[in-house]
């Protein structure tokens, strides 16, 4: 499949079907983008599992953290790779040893590895490259517009409000 651009329906489908997300390379440093993504997806109701060998057994953003994908005790829908592009193949190989298999391999904004993508797709997984799930979620639910960012979404449907203040959820 073409990984230079994705239809909104493809990204929306992945985000709506995923509940458990493992973030490989989640940082405990509160100013790193991986920390923002962890807290944002947690706030949207995803079951987020930070994966960071240096923080195994501890917490990142108040979430129990594991040292590797193999240590995760529950089925994972989406593996988000927050590592350099050249180690993405190794992460996919680890993901393909999980049982059950995850459904999606997602490589962060600036992370691109076609070999990793091919490996995952050959095993029947969906792949997203060079995108941020936080930005994509915020774009598709409408929140990103509050920052003056063009969402690219034209719709006459009302956004879906979540509990609380200024919180939207993605909808079909």
């Amino acid at each position: 499949m073409n990984h230079d651009s994705y239809e909104d329906a493809y990204i929306r489908g992945i985000l709506m079907a995923s509940r458990t997300v493992a973030i490989v390379g989640a940082s405990a440093n509160k100013v790193r983008p991986s920390y923002f993504v962890t807290t944002y997806l947690d706030s949207k109701g995803f079951d987020v599992i930070p994966v960071n060998p240096g923080k195994a057994g501890q917490q990142i953003a108040e979430l129990d953290t594991v040292g590797s994908l193999a240590e995760i005790d529950r089925p994972v829908d989406l593996v988000d790779i927050f590592r350099k592009s050249d180690v993405a193949v190794g992460v996919v190989q680890e993901a393909l040893k999980m049982d059950p298999l995850p459904k999606v391999i997602w490589m962060q904004l600036s992370v691109k590895n076609y070999e990793a993508a091919r490996l995952a797709e050959d095993a029947g997984l969906k792949v997203v490259m060079n995108r941020c799930p936080k930005i994509e979620y915020a774009r598709l639910c409408g929140e990103i517009g509050w920052s003056g960012v063009s969402s690219g979404v034209i719709t006459s449907r009302k956004p879906k409000l979540l509990k609380g203040i200024q919180r939207f959820s993605i909808v079909k």
């Binding site: 509160k30 517009g145 509050w146 003056g148 203040i165």
Partner: peptide, 22 residues
């Protein structure tokens, strides 16, 4: 801390102005 999207104060963002910006 710029970690979440949302409005704080109209000097920086405002939902009406944001529609214009988008």
């Amino acid at each position: 801390g710029l970690q979440a999207f949302g409005n704080i104060y109209t000097r920086i963002t405002n939902p009406t102005t944001a529609v214009l910006e988008g």
